[in-house]
Every structure is written in C-alpha cells, then in structure tokens.
Design a protein around this nucleic acid. Sequence first.
DNA 1: ATGAAAGCGCTAACAT
DNA 2: ATGTTAGCGCTTTCAT
Lengths: 325, 325
Amino acid sequence: MATIKDVAKHANVSVATVSRYLNKKGYLSKEAEQKVKEAIGALNYKPNSVARSLYHKTSKMLGLVIPDITNPFFPELARAVEDVALTYGYTVVICNTDEDIDKEKHYIEALKSKYVDGLIIATHELSEKDYLDLGIPLVMLDRTIGEAIPSVRSNNREGAKLGTKYLIEQGCQFIAHVRGPLTIKTAYDRYLGFKDVVDQHQTRHEIVESAFDIDESKQKILKILNEYPEIDGIFTSSDVMAVGALKATQSLGLHVPEDIQIIGFDGIPLGEMLIPSLTTISQSIYKMGTLACRLLIKQIEKKPLEELHFVLETELKIRETTRGE
Amino acid sequence: MATIKDVAKHANVSVATVSRYLNKKGYLSKEAEQKVKEAIGALNYKPNSVARSLYHKTSKMLGLVIPDITNPFFPELARAVEDVALTYGYTVVICNTDEDIDKEKHYIEALKSKYVDGLIIATHELSEKDYLDLGIPLVMLDRTIGEAIPSVRSNNREGAKLGTKYLIEQGCQFIAHVRGPLTIKTAYDRYLGFKDVVDQHQTRHEIVESAFDIDESKQKILKILNEYPEIDGIFTSSDVMAVGALKATQSLGLHVPEDIQIIGFDGIPLGEMLIPSLTTISQSIYKMGTLACRLLIKQIEKKPLEELHFVLETELKIRETTRGE
DNA sequence: ATGAAAGCGCTAACAT
DNA sequence: ATGTTAGCGCTTTCAT
C-alpha cells in the first residue's frame, strides 16, 4: 500500500503538500494540486485511517452496545444506526453484552483503546457515573440515566395505555399483563401505563412477570390462564412475549381473537409474519436508531444540541390478534 | 489516558522496559517487572490499540460483510462470529451492503485503511480476483468462489432433496417450488436438489422464482395456486419465503397442513415462532458462523488449514406445516 | 537487564 | 506557496 511519502515522491512535492491537498487546508498552488492528484491516482493511494487516528485521537468509529443482536428488536435498530453512520462517514461496531456487566466493560475498554468517537448504549448495566467517566460522547437508547446524557426512547407509559384501552374497547373484561423484569425501566413504564387504565376503568386484571423470552412468557401465561380461565385479553410487555402468549393460547385450544385477544409491544417485523398477525404497540424503531445516531454525531462534531431527551410516540397497529372494528 | 511514557516515568524505567513487560518479550528483572506492574495499576494504564495497529499493520478487527442484518438469517450468524471473535480478542465490524457493489467496495476500503485483519464475506457481489487483490485473509460464507479462498456453506442440494422427499412421503402429489434468484448459487443448488427428487419420483411440479422476500413470495404463490389449485405441497428456498407461502394459503382459506403442506429452508428462529410452526430444512447457522470465524483467525495467525472448504449437512426439522407421522 | 532511538503514516506548527 | 520536522503511542533493533 502506498503511503503519503510515496505520493510526495511521485509528485515531487513534500508530504506536507500532499497532506494539505488531502485535507483541503492551507495554501496550495494549482500546479501542485494537479501533480498530487495525479500521483494519488497513479499509486491508488488511500490515506491510512490508523495513522490519522493516532494523531487525532479519533477514529470515525461508533460503538453500539446492545444486549443481543439475536433479539428481534435490535437488527432494525442497528441497521438504522449504521445507515446514518455511513452517511457521515462513520463505521459502527456492534457489541453484544448479553446483559453481562463484565462483557460490557470489556467491550467499552476495547473501543476506547481504539479511540472510538462515541457510544450508543441500549443496555441497562452500568451507572451514570461509569458512563460519564468514559469521557466520550454518549447517547442512551431506550432509557434515560440522569439529565446529562442525551437519550432517545419511546413513550412507553402512553403506549401501554393505548394498548390496554383498546383491549377494553374491544370488550375485554379480564386482562392479564405480562410485564418485563422490574429492573428494567422500560418494562416498568409499560406496567404503569397498563395499571393507569385498568384502575381507571376498574377492569379486572392480573399481572405476571417474565423475561423477554418466548418460552418463559408462554409458561407464565399457561399458568395464569389455568388459574383464571375467564381471562379474555392479554397485554404483553414485548412482541416476543406475545408470541409466547399466542403459543400458550393455541396449546389450550383457545381461539384468537374470538376467545381471547392479544396485544404486544415493540412493533418488530416478526409481528406481521405471524398468523394471526400480531396487534401491537409499535415503536418507531428505525427512527429511534437514526435519531440516536444523529444525536451522537452532533455531539462528536461539537454541534449544539437544542434538545437532550427525546421521547417518541408509539402507535397502535391493529392486526389480527384483536377483534377489530 | 495514561501512555506508556507515563508508566515508564512512574516506574522509573524506560518505555522499552514497559513494552517488554506488556508483551512478555525480552529480558526483564523481577524488580523491574514489579515496578512496572505497580505503575500500570496506579495509572490505570491501558495500551493504546491504535498505536499498536500503526506499528503492526494489524488491528484485531474482523469485518463481516453481509447483505442486511435485518434479514433474519444474519443475526444468529453475526452472533456466532462475534462470540468466537471475542474469545480470541478480536472485534467484529458488521457491514450491510444491501447487495450493492459500491457499498461493499466502500466498506472494504474503509476497513482496509483501518488495517482490518480479515474478512468474512457472505455476499455475492465481487469477483474472486477482487477479493484476492485485497491481500488479506478471507473466508467465504454460504458460497465458494474458486479454490483459493476458504469457504463454509451448507449442503444445499442435499437439503433440498431431504425436504422434497419428505413432502412426497407425506403424500404430496403436486409440489410447487419457490426458488430464489438465479444468480445466487445457493438458491440454484436448492433448486437442483428439488429437481433431482421430483424428476426421480416423476412428481408433478411447478417452479416460480422470487426474491427472498415475504411479499413477493406470497404474490407468486397466490398466482400459481390460482392457476393450479391441485397443488398440495410447497417447498420454498428460504423460511422467509415460506412465511409468504403461509400467508398466501391462509388468505385463500386453505388449511395447513391438511390441504397443503409447506417446507421452508434455513431454520431461522422465526420458524418456531410461527403458528403453525414451520417445517424446514435447517442449516447450522451458528455453527457456520463459528467455523467461518475460526477459519479466518487461523489464517490471520498463520496456522495451517488442513481443510479449505467446509460443507455442513442440513437437517429436516419436522414441525407443524407438514402432516407428521 | 536496560535504555536510546528509529520508525509505523499522518498532521500541523514553524520556517522559509 | 512549500518544505522541514516534531509528535501521536507503541514496538523493536541496537548499544551498553
């Protein structure tokens, strides 16, 4: 691979001149410009990012820290981040932490030593201080952590209200809510939204807790359906959980949506592929990703942020697991 | 961030000594070792990867070039690659090319200028020469391209035979095959396998072509089902296409598997989540990823490869879209 | 056993 | 307008 020296030699100028050409900085005669341009073409020269990084302490790399790319919520998000990163000339490195604090630390350390320019964090492991101490631009995705770190998330509580309300409108008299782990704020907000509505309407309800996991959700629902066969509506804290619900009702010989209606949360592509397709509270996943990435790049480029915390509205996507009009 | 100089100063030794300690190379007195160790601890020193990269022309980074992480085949693959990469201390950068040759070239260029150590390629854009000219270790995933570049793929033809045979065993008399784009070798092999079996059994059949896309597949199937209502079996070239088939049969009021049986190909997690769950020819996706990554790292570490081309067997996963025993 | 110094490829301050 | 050079943080050869 040709270096800047080779180009300088070939063009009969100094490396500084080549560098000026490359960065369009400082004075440069038309003539020199022409010679350099030719040399670069002739040698097929490409600037070496590593050398640039070493000098600038910057890498044009972004880190995306997520629990697991295999969770259907994240591919679309990752895609969104990557799409805008590409636009601005950044490369993104995805880190699967499996919600393991050591793994997360390991990755962040590795990225820092590569001069990563910023991080989008979609996990719930470290504390605000840990993140702030990193000393690099950050965006929290799907949660806020203190006021200082910019964030992008959905209005989970309102979304949950939307879904619960719709279930009641469709005639549900006894609704089960499968909520996510208590430690996860997102899941807690959805629980709160559910609670708001059932309390207000004095709707009979039961709440179970489950990991965002299809099988655990199925088991929990089987259990509660067994205990309360009158349940005629299920609102789950995620679409994956709703699949578990669907499996459970199916194995019980229940018809959806005739006997029991189901609403999920997330709006992952899977929902549309199911038969029956899943009614859900859809988050603007792609938009969350692009927004987070733009926020991050703005910080990296030291542009002012007129707003730090973004809350996106959710949308009720009526499909086949509810009765419809 | 502390540098090697800081550590040297703190420990009252030269940077060379610190470097020797870091790399466990060359002579080092117990005493010096102790001092350096302390200094590193005290300063919380972490070696800078960028500086190392510049010297070694190596980055401990791997590139994974795929069409689109949003395609449900790839998250599991990416996960597998990352898991083994992590074990060996590598970081992986995922590149979504959208099957766009310019995007692929752009990414590869960017990675090269970052001294990426190797590439796993799961796209079909560039030629063997293009790849060879890169001059870095490579593994082809899901296809072979010449003899020189190591590869990992499934035995697609045998897999297709397995599926087609099973459909016939289950009583199908008229089978439709939705094949993938002709340009994709993988899809072609599956088509060949299908053809092998229907020809041998003189089974009535029809073939349509579709992108690996749910809606297009649905439309194509709707059309052929309309033309030949006697079709009682569908074998698709991917699971996503099979979802299209399921949607099509459902919209026609057909019962699966009673009226018509369906078999997909891939074994993506989605298949299990569907209701009815999808009978499919399952590839060992995770294994393909780990194998490819190990192969790549072996090359990077200049270890001999006893074998260059790996063909993994597929497995028939009998679920609910076929009649079963 | 340890240190000084060159060099990886690039940028920018300084000199001319 | 252009060139010389120090330095980014690290590794390694060569002295000592």
